[in-house]
Design a protein around this nucleic acid. Structure first.
Length: 471
RNA sequence: GGCGGGGUAGCCAAGUGGUAAGGUCGCGGUCUGCAAAACCGCUAUUCGCGGGUUCGAUUCCCGCCCCCGCCUCCA
């Protein structure tokens, strides 16, 4: 099956065709974090979806160039810096650092570029774009000195969200001191400095101020990827107004179609509800790690549901993720034992079929659930063959090679676990106790190993110890 | 009110105009000193509800109900 994705713009599944005439190079722009606090697991669901997308495109032979912006100036960062009585950069730095730590723990590939909104080159680019928009009558400076986009002059405004502009209602989420706008839907490109901004601001043709949120992404995307990009991703809540505004700004400047495919990830719910601090169901990655779950377990839990379906985060779900990964770990351990020392043996026809199923399923708008279904079916079939002693080393190796491809997309395999000397000493003692049929001592040692996070299994080839899932 | 996404077993979830993948949990069995893992078996006569089309619908059409989100700076 050819690659296809659900494009928010058309609300339809579309075959994927990159702009690159050779069909190999793909540009992706993804909206990154606002660094005013630790990102929460809902944010990471979106980033994991984007990572899955990139990894699958790469498995399919595409050369992906991805940009993720860092918003390091906005109302919240300014407020945070003011309350902490420290410079803005000093306030955002630790959150940037935490963000990079978090994505590493979740095995999210780093983007090729992480432009920050406060980089002078992007501020300059934003100012240049705003000037162009004003020159084209698509923007105006209002009485309050801020510059706004004039949505009535951009006929396509509302096409992405499929909104009728006359229906726009204020939700009161934004402070409404913006009476100077011509239309309630006009959004700020440049926000005039006010007292609350303190010493944060940049000089511009319209006076001191700071960029609006939307213009950042237009400036950084076009600066790094050009006037047109293949795929732009984000959470569904960014469709309107953020991405709608990006289209208006970018196309208003370049006159070219900005994005070919808009992909949006559904929300993460926690216990069936939106995360919020007041409900006490608000989790950062650190919160979940503290409960004893590992990065790959969290990655799996956030990845296993299709990106366009709402995902309900629960602790039962985390436990399920742990058990599922344990099943995969044990399967790999067995395959490696069966394969012995052989490496790089040519695959079997059976392997190829499974590979196609896994990959073709992902081609269909990243159908991860079906892809995992194929993986687990494969696991059962090969386990059955190994139980019967019917899987030869060459086939086991072929499966391991297949897994390498699968895991290049999923990125969920367990690291190599070195067995600590102390643990292997206990294991040897238990082996001796078992030979002596001293079951009491043997069981005590098993409990001891268990307490240290290691599980023992007595097989016909002798005792095996493995690291317990999550330990 | 407008615009979306979703409603399939205890929980998570795939899927198709032809009779329900997979994961997890639970129960029984094989194996084991006992376990663990693995494997085998059982667990939705049924896919939110009501109509319609059809030889046949969970899948198509119409109506309705419920959950979640967006509607101007939340991924």
């Amino acid at each position: 099956m050819a690659l296809r994705f659900f494009n928010t713009y058309s609300r339809d599944l579309e075959q994927f065709h990159p702009r690159d005439p050779n069909g190999r190079k793909i540009d992706i722009y993804t909206c990154g974090p606002t660094v005013y606090s630790r990102a929460h697991i809902g944010n990471f669901r979106a980033y994991i979806f984007e990572d899955l997308l990139q990894r699958h495109l790469e498995l399919r032979g595409y050369n992906v160039h991805r940009v993720m912006n860092i918003t390091d100036v906005d109302d919240k960062t300014i407020r945070g810096a003011r309350e902490a009585k420290i410079p803005l950069q000093e306030f955002t730095a630790p959150f940037k650092q935490a963000f990079f730590q978090d994505i590493e723990r979740l095995r999210i590939k780093r983007a090729d570029d992480f432009p920050a909104a406060t980089d002078q080159i992007y501020i300059d680019k934003m100012i240049a774009m705003i000037s162009t928009l004003i020159a084209r009558d698509l923007a105006y400076q209002a009485e309050d000195k801020s510059v706004y986009f004039r949505i009535n002059r951009f006929p396509d405004y509302g096409k992405l969200a499929h909104f009728d502009l006359t229906q726009l209602q204020s939700t009161g989420r934004v402070k409404h001191d913006e009476y100077d706008k011509e239309h309630i839907g006009d959004f700020a490109l440049w926000k005039a400095w006010d007292e609350e901004d303190g010493d944060i601001g940049w000089e511009s043709p319209w006076g001191r101020g700071r960029p609006g949120w939307h213009i950042e992404c237009s400036a950084m995307a076009t600066a790094l990827l050009g006037d047109q990009i293949d795929i732009h991703c984000g959470g569904v809540d960014n469709i309107f107004p953020h991405h709608e505004a990006e289209i208006a700004q970018s196309e208003g400047c370049t006159g070219k179609k900005f994005v070919r495919y808009w992909l949006h990830c559904a929300h993460l719910l926690v216990d069936g509800q939106k995360m919020s601090k007041s409900l006490g169901n608000f989790y950062t990655l650190a919160d979940v790690l503290e409960k004893g779950y590992t990065g790959r377990e969290i990655r799996y839990a956030l990845m296993r549901v299709h990106y366009r379906a709402p995902l309900n985060f629960t602790w039962d779900g985390m436990e399920e993720a742990r058990q599922s990964l344990g099943r995969i770990d044990d399967w790999l351990t067995r395959l490696r034992e069966t394969a012995g020392n052989k490496i790089d043996v040519a695959g079997t026809t059976q392997r190829t079929d499974a590979a196609n199923n896994f990959e073709e399923t992902l081609d269909d708008d990243l159908n991860i659930s079906a892809a995992l279904g194929f993986l687990f079916e494969t696991i059962r079939e090969t386990n059955r063959a190994m139980d019967r002693g019917e899987l030869d080393p060459a086939s086991a190796n072929a499966w391991l090679n297949w897994w390498e491809r699968v895991d290049s997309v999923l990125a969920i395999s367990d690291g190599e676990n070195e067995i600590p000397a102390e643990v292997s000493k206990l294991a040897r003692e238990r082996e001796q106790a078992r030979l002596a049929k001293d079951w009491r001592k043997s069981d005590e040692l098993r409990n001891e190993l268990n307490a240290r996070g290691w599980e023992t299994r007595d097989t016909k080839d002798g005792q095996k110890i493995t690291r317990r899932a999550g330990a």
